[in-house]
Simulated scan of single mutants.
Amino acid sequence: MNTWSTQHSFTPLALTSTDSLPDLAMINLNDWGMVTLVGPDSKSYLQGQLTCDVVSLTADKSTFAGHCDAKGKLRTILRVFHYQNGYGLLQRQSVMATQLPELKKYAVFSKTEITQTTAVILGLAGAQAQATIDHHFSGDADVRYNDTATVVKVDNARWLIITTAEQADSVITTLAPAATLTTTELWNLYDIQAAMPRIDSATELEFIPQAVNLQAVDGISFKKGCYTGQETVARAKYRGINKRAMYIVAGASTQCPQPGDGLERSVGENWRKGGTVICGYHYSDNHALALVVLPNDLDADSQFRFATAPDALWHKLDLPYDVNAE
């Protein structure tokens, strides 16, 4: 039996809202999973399924992508990259059981094998993450590999590590022996601060890609041609039908906001349904952050609250990118 996860103690960090993040943290991303596509038709098959341009994706890069239903509603958001002899697709484990059969639905007509892997997925984060990867993996590409792992750059402070259960102990011990070992909550914090979209089971088939800012993180190609849901996505861009966007909000809370939770917004002296939580993080000093899909025409000083804690007011923070970027 593989015991890498018990040989190493991954424990939650009790961070306050004023604490600095660890210089180097190894994170057990057991709530993320990977699907692989192998076969000569894999590229063309994905090109007709995802919002990104798979054809132009080079072996040294990764990209965000959405997988939609025919109405343009997101089943999932993926990180796509070349992996071994095909493609790797990283997504939330919570959508795997419903999304994967849909991805496979038309594969019978193509020469591609679609498989949910048993890969171990880890995250390396912090100010020393880039130097650590550079020391152990040659080259300067955003996707690299050696005999034990494939690594994929997320941003200047984070890398994903994909390995096997047999190799995981060696990867952790060799790559970052002095790193803080922690749980997925720290990765959630990084994702919120970077406003990186995701879809969990609680938000599956709720939003079109632009409602979670997928276009702002280069996850949509408007030039690639047809794919499932493309008509809705294009109409949202060229006819302006999308009325929502994803924002970072902050406030006092005694618990962590969960995907699918509803946030109310102030309208004069009244409160109305405002938005839906995508991801949340709770600090140990009872402050919290969340990614929330909200109307995209709100005033800058709009206030928000959760119905379960009506006295705690929340507010928007600045996004790290231009939500209207092409």
Rank of each mutant, 00 (worst) to 15 (best):
W4I: 01
S9A: 14
F10H: 09
P12A: 11
A14R: 04
S17P: 06
S20T: 01
D23L: 12
N28K: 14
N28I: 06
W32Y: 10
T36E: 13
G39C: 08
D41Y: 15
K43M: 12
L46S: 00
V54M: 08
S62A: 04
C68Y: 08
K71F: 09
G72L: 04
K73G: 07
R75W: 11
R79V: 00
V80W: 07
F81D: 11
G86V: 00
V95R: 08
M96R: 10
T98W: 03
P101L: 07
E102Q: 08
K105W: 00
K105M: 02
K105H: 10
S110L: 01
S110G: 05
T115N: 15
T115V: 03
T118N: 07
L122F: 10
L124N: 10
Q128P: 11
Q128E: 14
A129E: 07
Q130V: 02
H135Y: 13
H136G: 12
A141E: 14
R144K: 11
R144F: 05
K153W: 07
N156Y: 07
I161V: 09
A165S: 13
S170C: 00
I172Q: 12
I172R: 13
T174L: 02
A178H: 11
T180N: 14
Y190P: 14
Y190H: 10
I199N: 15
I208H: 04
A211M: 15
V217I: 11
G219V: 00
I220R: 04
S221R: 12
S221D: 11
S221Y: 12
F222V: 01
Q230E: 03
T232S: 13
Y238N: 07
G240I: 00
I241N: 13
K243T: 02
M246N: 06
E264F: 01
V267K: 13
V267I: 07
V277Q: 04
Y281T: 02
H282D: 10
D285W: 15
N286R: 03
L289E: 10
L291E: 05
P295A: 07
A300D: 11
D301L: 01
S302Q: 14
S302H: 10
R305S: 03
P320D: 04
Y321H: 05
